[in-house]
Structure formats: C-alpha cells, structure tokens
Simulated assay, not measured.
Amino acid sequence: MPAVHRNSRPVLRPVLLALIAAISLGACQTRQSQLAQDDESAWYIGAKADKPFDIPLVDTNRLDPKYRRQTVAYTGLEPAGTIVVDIDQRQLFLVQEGGTALRYGVGVGKQGFSWKGEARVGRKGVWPDWSPTPTMVSLNPDLPRTRKGGLDNPLGARALYLYQGNRDILFRIHGTNEPWSIGEQMSSGCVRMLNEDIADLYERVPVNARVVVKRGGKPRTI
C-alpha cells in the first residue's frame, strides 16, 4: 500500500492560484468559482506517494458528507463493475456485488454542458496530458495545443476516457486540482473527482468497463 505522508503539505498554493487565474482551457476546465476564494492550501492535509507526482490529499471534512467516498446500498439494475454517474445528485457509483456500490462525489458540467448516455472506458491515463479539441481551438486559437500532466493540469492524477464503439467522445472522468468544485455544476462537461478518488476508481475498473451517465433519472441512448 502506498505510503501516506500525513505531515507533509504539498506546495500547491502557487500553482493553484495561477491555474484559477488562467484563461479557461476547455472541455474539462471550470469557470472561476466563488468557492475558490477560500484559502486553497487549507484544503490539503498531506500527500500520498505516487509517480511521477505525489497525490495531494484533501481534508474531506470540508465536503458535504454525501460527497465523501463510501460504500452504500444500491438498488439499480446495472451489473457489478458498471460505473454510474448521476449528474443531478453529483455522485458516481461503482456497482458492487450484493446490492452495494462504492459512491464518490463528483463535479459536473454547468447547465447546458452535461453529457448523458452510455459509453465505455476506452482507455485510461496516469497524470495525463491535456489537449484542446478542434472546436476549442476554433473558438480560441490562442489556446496551448497541449499541457503536460502535473499538479497544475486540469485532468489531475488520472483520467478515464469515454468511448462509444471506437470513437473517443471527448468526455472524461478525471481528477481535479479544484477540490472545492466537487458537488458543484461548474465544468464544461467532464465529470471530475478528487485526485485520491479517481486514483482509487482507476485501480478498480478495467478498460471496456461500462459507463452510464444519467440526468433526469435516466440516460439517453446516443
């Protein structure tokens, strides 16, 4: 099990402040949040060993209890191994055997940007690089064409890339360096999780895992 450094506080404040002040990077980026006015460094309580960067650990006492990782009863019809994202509740479920699920809090797309439907995990990434879509570039030609993975990258520590068939639909389940956005409807479409939570989910689900994203109580088949 990776070592947890309880007494070390990652030096995140400068990069987080720079990120919040930066121009929006696109589909997985947020608008500036009023919640970010709080002292960013107060959100962090240490780091968990990881490569090539340690994963910043969040003080989850700052979150509403319903957004903290926990095992819950699950009555849905999806089989074990399915990822179910409830946009309305801002929660992600990994269905388990025996009528339970692991539940995580998530941040979702702001009004008009939240995707829903069925997909699969087409690939997975560790501290992934970020790149804008062609649409983003057409709207903002000055966007950087790539951003290397790291603490100041909007995709965070891990990413699950959603596909339909062999087509990357450009929506992700990924980490975030804005933990205050969990439970909020802020992003431009992607589903974001605490870095420690997406790292946990990443280890539990394989490529080709089924993903169901619900809004208004049900998914829309595309």
Rank of each mutant, 00 (worst) to 15 (best):
W180F: 11
N61F: 10
A36N: 04
P154R: 07
P14L: 12
N177W: 12
G175L: 02
T100A: 04
G105S: 03
R68H: 01
V137Q: 09
E40L: 12
T75S: 15
A73T: 07
Y104C: 04
E203I: 03
E196F: 06
G165L: 12
P14E: 11
V205W: 04
Q96K: 13
Y163W: 11
D39E: 14
T30N: 10
T146I: 13
N61I: 08
W130C: 09
I83F: 01
D197T: 12
A119V: 05
I198C: 04
L160G: 04
V126Q: 05
Y202R: 09
F171M: 06
N195E: 11
R145S: 02
W127R: 02
T221R: 15
K124V: 05
V106R: 06
D129M: 04
E184R: 00
Y74D: 04
D129A: 14
F53N: 08
A73D: 09
T100W: 02
I45F: 08
G112E: 03
P56H: 00
K124Q: 08
A21Y: 10
Q89P: 00
E196Q: 15
E78T: 04
E184A: 11
G183H: 10
G81F: 06
V4D: 09
R204I: 14
V58P: 05
W180V: 03
I169W: 06
R204A: 15
T30D: 08
G76P: 00
M186W: 12
L162V: 04
D168W: 01
Q91M: 09
L63V: 00
R13K: 15
G149P: 03
N140A: 09
S138D: 14
L94H: 02
N153Q: 12
R167T: 15
R69L: 10
V121E: 02
Y163I: 05
A27K: 08
V207W: 09
L201C: 13
E97H: 14
L77P: 06
A22R: 14
L162W: 05
G149S: 13
Q164F: 08
V211I: 09
G149K: 10
T100S: 05
A80C: 09
A27S: 15
S114Y: 01
R192E: 08
L143A: 05
A101T: 00
P56W: 00
L19W: 01
K148A: 15
K124I: 01
Q89I: 00
G125C: 00
T82I: 00
